[in-house]
């Protein structure tokens, strides 16, 4: 067995590992019914299938409910400060190609206080996977609206309704030059496992937005999407974009826009065929815009974009390898000795 591209350089485990190996001795302390439980369980099972050594996984988080995640995984981890996890993980990934690096963050942590770091990690394409738990609310600070809350949201800090336009994290990531962008949902373990596995295979920054229910402050935020009649638009590479059992589809209109239609009413040739590897990001971006900005009635899930682009940390290490002196110790001595020197005698 060899490690996938995204994990090349990470040592492989001789013994097969299980979910239990990745379960720490810490009691999980999320609220009953929190979507984080199923994401944690899915992650622990998924990471055990990667075939890598347990001690070579590092999870860095910021602040928020989701950021408690590292404590519950028996690997190396850092629960850091608000919004900065991508920056800290960048330092880990650059210096250690033998590590499987993860960032766990939420909609407040990643998109509000840490927006700048997220954007630049994606731009650089540092080899790591970012799980963005999006519950569209601030949980840890007890229920204020977040940068993904719908306009008009009534919360403790917006008693007359929130006024600011929400971010679409997928659109944002594609705009920030991300090479791997996907979305999944806490309630679908199979789908989440597939997406996370694909994310680890990708070399560079993988952003996975995970719709996650907060039963306390924003319960059922994603309920309208679920069930056989729901409007989760599942993206499959190489396949036409059909959903709700094929009843609906996504077509490209004559003016070039993407639009949801009733499959029976359209010319089958106009149905969009998804290609996650397209170099041009415009179709992936257009698909991301099918997400309702307000109360969610429809949203695509799956991998929007998965393109090959050099990982920043690989380039950094390659550059050092290229210019590194054969004997760094003597090279250092000669650098320090400088060019123009003179000899002094005590006079």
């Amino acid at each position: 067995m060899t490690a996938p591209t995204g994990l090349a350089g990470v040592p492989l485990s001789i013994e097969p590992l299980t979910k239990k190996d990745y379960t720490s001795d810490q009691e999980v302390r999320w609220c009953p019914g929190c979507g984080d439980y199923s994401i944690l369980a899915t992650f622990q099972s998924m990471v055990a299938t990667l075939g890598i050594k347990r001690e070579n996984t590092v999870i860095v988080s910021g602040i928020g409910c989701s950021s408690r995640f590292p404590y519950y995984v028996d690997a190396y981890g850092m629960h850091s400060i608000h919004g900065r996890a991508p920056a800290i993980a960048t330092g880990v990934a650059m210096t250690r190609p033998d590590l499987n690096v993860w960032v766990v963050t939420g909609d407040g942590d990643a998109l509000s206080i840490g927006g700048n770091h997220l954007m630049h990690a994606l731009r650089r394409n540092v080899n790591m996977t970012i799980m963005l738990f999006n519950n569209r609310i601030y949980g840890l600070t007890k229920g204020q609206y977040s940068p993904t809350s719908e306009v008009g949201k009534i919360t403790k800090s917006t008693p007359f309704g929130s006024l600011d336009t929400p971010f679409n994290p997928i659109s944002l990531a594609i705009g920030a030059e991300a090479s791997f962008v996907a979305r999944s949902i806490d309630s679908d373990r199979k789908h989440l496992t597939e997406v996370l596995t694909a994310a680890t295979r990708h070399r560079g920054t993988s952003l996975v937005e995970i719709y996650q229910n907060c039963p306390i402050f924003n319960d059922d935020a994603f309920e309208t999407l679920k069930g056989p009649e729901g409007a989760l638009i599942s993206l499959r590479d190489g396949e036409p974009v059909l959903f709700a059992g094929g009843e609906y589809c996504v077509i490209r209109t004559d003016s070039g826009e993407l639009k949801v239609s009733v499959t029976a009413d359209v010319d089958p040739a106009s149905i969009v065929v998804h290609d996650e590897t397209r170099a041009d990001p415009s179709q992936a971006f257009a698909l991301s815009r099918l997400t309702e900005p307000g109360i969610l009635q429809q949203a695509p899930i799956g991998i929007f974009r998965n393109v090959t682009r050099p990982a920043y940390d690989d380039l950094v290490r390659d550059q050092i390898t290229d210019v590194r002196a054969d004997d760094p110790t003597s090279a250092l001595a000669s650098v320090i000795a400088g060019g123009d020197t003179w000899e002094a005698d005590e006079k």
Partner: peptide
């Protein structure tokens, strides 16, 4: 932040 990450990883 990156410097702290690098230290965490042993640099």
């Amino acid at each position: 932040g990156a410097a702290i990450g690098a230290s965490f990883a042993g640099s």
